[in-house]
Design a protein around this nucleic acid. Sequence first.
DNA 1: ACATACGGGACGGCCCGTTAGT
DNA 2: ACTAACGGGCCGTCCCGTATGT
Lengths: 221, 221, 221, 221
Amino acid sequence: MLTTADHLPRTKDPEATRARLLECAFEEIYRHGYGGASVDRILSQTGLTKGALYHHFGSKADLAYAVIEEVIGGKLDQLWVAPLRESDDPLGALTDLLGGYMTGEASMIDLERGCPLNNLTQELANADEEFRTRLLHVHEAWRNGIATALERGQAAGTVRDDVEPSATATFIVSAIEGLAGTAKSTRDLPLVLAAGGVLVQFLESLRPAPTTRRRPRPKRH
Amino acid sequence: MLTTADHLPRTKDPEATRARLLECAFEEIYRHGYGGASVDRILSQTGLTKGALYHHFGSKADLAYAVIEEVIGGKLDQLWVAPLRESDDPLGALTDLLGGYMTGEASMIDLERGCPLNNLTQELANADEEFRTRLLHVHEAWRNGIATALERGQAAGTVRDDVEPSATATFIVSAIEGLAGTAKSTRDLPLVLAAGGVLVQFLESLRPAPTTRRRPRPKRH
Amino acid sequence: MLTTADHLPRTKDPEATRARLLECAFEEIYRHGYGGASVDRILSQTGLTKGALYHHFGSKADLAYAVIEEVIGGKLDQLWVAPLRESDDPLGALTDLLGGYMTGEASMIDLERGCPLNNLTQELANADEEFRTRLLHVHEAWRNGIATALERGQAAGTVRDDVEPSATATFIVSAIEGLAGTAKSTRDLPLVLAAGGVLVQFLESLRPAPTTRRRPRPKRH
Amino acid sequence: MLTTADHLPRTKDPEATRARLLECAFEEIYRHGYGGASVDRILSQTGLTKGALYHHFGSKADLAYAVIEEVIGGKLDQLWVAPLRESDDPLGALTDLLGGYMTGEASMIDLERGCPLNNLTQELANADEEFRTRLLHVHEAWRNGIATALERGQAAGTVRDDVEPSATATFIVSAIEGLAGTAKSTRDLPLVLAAGGVLVQFLESLRPAPTTRRRPRPKRH
DNA sequence: ACATACGGGACGGCCCGTTAGT
DNA sequence: ACTAACGGGCCGTCCCGTATGT
C-alpha cells in the first residue's frame, strides 16, 4: 500500500473520467456522426462502463451537448477566434490561418473527416432544436470573432470601410465550411488549395485601395 | 389522349413504384439523413412493403445510391447546371440563380433542411467509399458545369481572363454549400441574404474591368 | 421459325425444367439443409424464376419431397441396392461397395458433406411428419435391400443362418450412416477408413464358420 | 446453511440467467436445429429479453457454441464417458449403457429427436468451420473416452489384444450415432433394439476367446 | 464514483408465396 | 409454361437507458 501517490489517475478521479469521456465522445462523433456514434464503443475505448457515463451525463444527447460546447467550442476559439483577437490586420491573420490549417496538421478540419462543427450542424440542425441552439452559439462565436476583428481592422485602416462586418464574416465562415465539405468529398488537396487561394484573393479585395502614398502593409509574425 | 387511362397507378406498374420509392426515400433521407432514415417509414409512406423495395433495390444503400444519382443529381443539374449551359454570362446567371433560389421556393436548398447533397456528403463521405464516389460524381458535375460556363464567359468576354475556372468554380460551389449550412443552423434569412450579397459582390469582381467604353452588360432574362 | 428440331431444350420444355429444378434443389439442400436452402438461390442457379418453380411444385416442401423420393431415392437404389440384387454373396458385395465408395469419387457420401439422406433425416425427421414418411420410405428401401440380400446369402450359404436379416441390415445401414457422420465431422479420412475396416471385420464375422473342407469363397467381379 | 437464502433467483443473478439461457437454447436447438432455432422463442421461454442474451452471448452462434461445449459436452461426458472411466470391462459397461439408454429415459438420445450432437453435426459440420471445430472436440472426447477404456480393457484382459482401440472406438461411436438416426427416422423401437442387439453382439465378439478355464466374467454393477 | 446485468424496442435483411401479366 | 412485381412476416443485431450493487 502506498502512502501517497494519490495524485495519479486513481480509480476514482471524476474530473479525469469526465475529460476522457468527452475526448473519446468527440472522436466517435467526429467519425460516425451523432446518430452513428455508439455509446458502447465510446465506453470500450475509454475502458469505462455505462455507469460511469450516465453518472456524468444524463444521456447520449447531454454528452454530445458537452462535446459541442466544451470540445468543439474550445477548439474553435483556440484555432480561429483567439488568433484574431490580437491582430489589427484580420485579413492577413485569416490568410495565415487558412494557409496554416489547410496545409498543416493542427487544423480542426482534416481533409477526410471535414469540420466537426459543420458535420454536426448538417446532421442535427433541423432535427433537434436543442442541438441547433448549442451549435448556433458556437457558430455565432466564430462569426462574431471575425466580425469584431473586421471592425477592428476597419478602425486600424486595414479593411475597407464599405465592408459590412457581419455579412462578410458570415460569408467567410460559410466559405470555410464549404471548403471543408469540398475537401471531405473530393479529398483532392490541390483542388481545395486552389479554391482556398480564391478565398484569399477575395480577402485581399477587402483591403483599402492603396493610396498614392505607401500602403500600410501590416506585419505578419 | 388514350381512351384507357393507362398512366394511372395500375396494379402493376414497376416504373411508377420505383419512382415513388425514390421520391419518398429522398424525402426521408433529406429529413433524417441516411443513417436516420427508416426503411419502414419510407414503405409506410409509399404504401408499399418490404418485398417491393427489395425487388427494386438490393438494400437500403442501393436505394440511397439511386437517390443520389437520379434524384439529387437530376435536381442539381436542372437547378444549377442547365441554366448555365445556355448563357454567355455565367456570373449574371449565377447571380440570378442565387437570388432566385435563396428567396424563392423552387430551390433545392431550403432554409431549415439545408442542401441535400451537402447533408449526405457530410454524413457519409468519410464513412463509406461507395457513397463518396457517387456523391463526388454529383459534385463534379456541378463544379464542371460552373467551370465550363466560366470558360465560356471568358471566351465571350464576360469573365476576366485571369480567373481560373476550376478553382473559382470549386470556390463558388463551396461557398454556396457553406451558405446553405449557415442557413440551416441560423435560420436567419436576412443574415444569409446579406452573406449571399457578399458572394454576389465577389462574382461581380470577376468581371472584366470596364474598358474606356462601356461594358457590354449582358441581358438577363 | 424452325420446321423441326423441336426436341432440343426449347424455351418451353417442362420436363427438362422440372429436372433442372430437382437437380439444383438437391445440390442446394445437400449443401445448406432444407431450412437453410434458399428458393431464390435455386432459381438463380437454374436461371428460372418463381413462377416456374411454383408451377411445377406447390411449395418448397413439395420440391423437397420430390428431391427425396426421386433424386435421393434414385441414387441410393443405384448405388447401394441394385448392386446387391445380383449377388449371392451380400457380405462380399457390401465390402466391395464400402471400399469403393469410401475411397472413390462416385459415392453418395462425400467426406465433407456427409450422406444427403442422413442429413435430411437428422434435420427434419422430428419436425415434419410428411418429411419423416418420405425419408422413411427411402430408408426402408435401403434396409430391405440389404435384408433381402442377406436372406439370399443365407440360402446360398454365404451368410450364417443365425443372422437376423432385418436387425442386421438395420445395424449395417446405421453403421454406414454413422460413419458418414463421423467423416463429416472429422474429415479425417484415415480414421474413417480404419473404422470402416472394423465394419468389414464385422461383416466377415457373419460368414459361416469354415467347414473342415474348403470354404466356398464366392466370386467378386 | 446460510440464513439468507442467497441461492434463489435474486433480481440479479447472472449465473442463473446464463444457465437458463443455455438450457432453453439447448432445448430449442435440439427441437428445431440451429438454423430453425428462434432466438425470440428462447427468450420468451426464459422470460428474458434481448438485452440479457446479448449481454451474456455475443450472438446466436456464440450461444450455440456454449450449448455445444457446456451442455452437450457435459451431458455426453456424464452419460457416456464418465461411466467408462471406472470400469475395467469397457465392453460390458458399453453394453449396459446401450441397454439402459435405449430403453430408459435418462438418455441423451431420445427416440424422436435423435442425438443432439449428431443433429448439429449433420446440420453444421460443413457449413461453418467454427461449429465444426467445437463439435469435433466433443466427438473426440467421446471417441477418446471409449478408446482409452478399450486400452484399459486390453490391459485388464477383458478386450482382445488385436483390437485397435482408436478405430474400434470410432466405429462404435459411429454405430451409436447411426442407430440414433435410424431411431429418429423409423420411431420403431423394436427394430432399433434389435439392431442395438447386433451392436452388442459385435461388442461381445471383441472379448478374448474363452481360455480352457472359464472366462473371468467381470462384475456389472 | 463506477461496474454489471438486464429491459425493451426498432431496424435492416431476407425469405416464401401469390398474383397480375405474357 | 413462365416472368416479374409485390405482399407480408419473422429473424438476428444492436442500441440506449435503467436498476442494482459495491
